[in-house]
Amino acid sequence: MNLSQYPLLLWPPAASAIAQETDWLILAWTALALLLVAPVFVGMTWFAFHFRAGRNVHRGVREGRNHLLEVGWMVIPFVLTLIFFAWGARVFDEDWHPPAGATEIHAIGRQWMWKFQHPGGQSEINDLHVPLGQPIVISEISQDVIHSLYIPAMRIQMETLPDRYTRLWFKADRPGVYRMFCSEYCGTDHSKMDGELYVMKPADYEAWLAHAGTADSLAAEGKVLFSSYGCAGCHLPGATVRAPSLAGVYGNPVPMADGGTIVADDSYIRDKILDPDARKVAGYKQIMPSFKGQIPEDRLVPLIAYIKSLGAPNAEPNGEPTP
């Protein structure tokens, strides 16, 4: 499909069920809006002509205020619009919670390009290939300013923040090529920070992966980094210093030295690597050095993927991320 084949586009393609629902939402909203503003437009036009000065029409006015009318036209429209508040919140809620088993793709934004990393270790610049029918979570982080990953065909966007993971998800149900943009102004070439989203049939996607494939999966790549950055020297069994084993840490609660627990997710591990003193783990002497400024975002991603892959304690890392 050639994206710019239309000289004039009036409605964007919708490539997911949520995108279609968003369209229905805005259309229904517009229907109600027209109903609510019709009295204003019709009334104003009609009054302007019917009651124009010098025209002899009945203008007898009853004195006194009409409280019922004044309260009524405040309350009834408000209650009607709340339908759309609720509907919008429902769609938002759905967008907020990706289904279990979604494939996680990492997006790293920086002035002025996107880098996407697939779980299999394949990475691509600006464009993104995804399989049809499979929920995709995109975990985003920025290396510099705030960007925002926007996929109009999915009716979704999420800001890409420095130092903080955000995510969006979608499940494409129409194959095709769609546009992606950076929607948060980020400087000189903001408008060139765009790309194309290829939604492919699963078989084609597999073929694409194989073609683009690197030798290593993301987790395997992370394993190499884990040694080269010296993490292994402390964290692997048999190390001379006392550091927690990272097997089974991901997704489980970690007791903190100052009391309380934190569930170890991507942000927790990222924070630990960059600023290990911020929250200390109970039962250990904090000797881990900070890697701030040494490990770029696109290497943190495989490192975290590796730690994530260290499923249960003592289990051999299999290189595949656990869902």
Binding site: T22, L25, I26, F84, W87, G88, F92, I156, E184
Partner: peptide, 19 residues
């Protein structure tokens, strides 16, 4: 005003925010 309410609708804003 009405389009402002569209933007206050979460499901719509996710799409048209910053456009």
């Amino acid at each position: 005003g009405i389009t402002g309410l569209y933007l206050a609708t979460l499901g719509v804003d996710e799409h048209v925010h910053d456009t």
